[in-house]
Design a protein around this nucleic acid. Structure first.
Length: 374
DNA sequence: AAGCCGGGGAT
DNA sequence: ATCCCAGGCTT
């Protein structure tokens, strides 16, 4: 708060802490101060709404109650637990970081610096865990806090350093017991009151300190950046049956988008190409398979990713012969990147949400999916 | 600093 | 349809 002397900083801290004591939501990860669950919650909350995480947090901790349990688990199980939450690199990094901590420190990271160096732990997560679990005065600079600071100090900037300069004083001079509350209060104010679209200034404990409010620049804070439009692609995917009633599921490369997840074979349709032609071409390119039998169009589902959107066009078809007759398919199976599954077995595999929704178009898988969710 | 990575809910 | 969320990694 550049324009504010220390006495004002203290007044802001007091107002915010009093408000937090009165208004803070009761969230599962606020019932503990242990670093492991705090860490899990912070990773889940990366770009993910509180309400979504609220539904998943307890289940994840039931499955992986300790750092050692997470480190000992196979990655596939962690990915399955992460299914539907997106940004799957988070699950891969969480797993790697747990194994690294166990190996190098025999437990949780011993310092903020050691923790910050782990995969998937950036400036925000390291600050949040060290402030909330250990009471050290780091500023967790997330989207909420950035918005609160942009308004409180009327910042017309994108620079990270400007936000740090504005926010650091608010974390200083507190007793360690109040650091966790202060860190969470800044975020909570952004989540409940200092809303992005329609801020509830009348209810804000900081309204008399708010410089953007005084200057009537609230709608312009924080400064926004124009975003490019999302391109849209038609995609064809295939539910390929063999003669035993199994279907083919393939695994995405570990470090690609949706890395490690399982999906139906297929790919983008090209401009001017009919969907059945695209389907046959993709299967030829991907599996070196020709002469699909009984190719049928099932239907489509739309699905939006961060930077593009797709329409998934689902087909069914039957194998032209035994899988063993096709070298590319044999190779995929041998390396474990492709599996023939009976419908009920799908419950053990982590699938992207779009694939789940496409499979729901098939009655036989609808039943299997319902069984898998139980 | 910018581009990339999922998904979902609010408006 | 658009925005944006308790971000991190790579370039």
């Amino acid at each position: 708060m550049p324009a504010s002397p220390g006495t004002t900083t203290r007044a802001v801290q007091v107002a915010l802490l009093r408000w937090y004591a009165r208004c803070a939501r009761d969230l599962p990860w606020r019932r503990t101060s242990a670093p492991y669950p705090i860490w899990i919650s912070e990773v889940m909350l990366q770009q993910t709404r509180v309400e979504t995480v609220r539904l998943r947090f307890d289940e994840f901790l039931d499955r992986f109650p300790t750092l050692d349990a997470l480190a000992a688990a196979p990655l596939a199980r962690v990915l399955k637990s992460w299914e539907g939450m997106g940004y799957y690199a988070r699950a891969r990094n969480l797993h790697r970081a747990a194994r690294e901590m166990r190996r190098r420190y025999g437990g949780f990271a011993p310092s903020h610096a050691a923790f910050r160096a782990l995969p998937g732990v950036g400036a925000y997560t390291a600050a949040a865990v060290w402030a909330i679990a250990f009471g050290e005065a780091h500023l967790p600079l997330d989207g909420n806090v950035r918005r609160v600071l942009a308004r409180l100090c009327d910042l017309a900037t994108h620079r990270q350093d400007d936000y740090r300069a504005a926010g650091a004083p608010l974390m200083r001079g507190l007793p360690p017991s109040e650091v966790p509350q202060m860190a969470q209060a800044l975020m909570e104010l952004g989540a409940l009151t200092c809303l992005a679209r329609s801020p509830r200034c009348a209810d804000c404990p900081l309204r008399r300190f708010c410089q953007a409010r005084a200057r009537q620049t609230i709608p312009k804070r924080p400064l926004s950046r124009p975003r490019p439009a999302r391109p849209h692609h038609p995609v064809v995917i295939l539910y390929l049956r063999n003669r035993r009633g199994q279907f083919l599921l393939t695994q995405r490369p570990a470090h690609a988008m949706l890395g490690g997840l399982w999906e139906l074979p297929g790919g983008k349709a090209e401009a001017g190409e009919t969907l059945p032609r695209a389907m046959r071409r993709e299967i030829r390119e991907e599996l070196d398979l020709r002469g699909l039998r009984r190719l049928r169009y099932v239907g489509a589902v739309g699905h939006a990713y961060t930077h593009f959107a797709v329409t998934l066009h689902l087909f069914t078809a039957e194998m032209p012969g035994p899988a063993s007759a096709f070298p590319a398919l044999r190779r995929l199976s041998r390396t474990g990147r492709a599996r023939w599954l009976f419908p009920h077995q799908i419950a053990d595999y982590a699938l992207p949400t779009g694939t789940h929704r496409a499979l729901a178009l098939l009655p036989e898988l609808h039943r299997a999916r319902a069984a898998g969710r139980r």
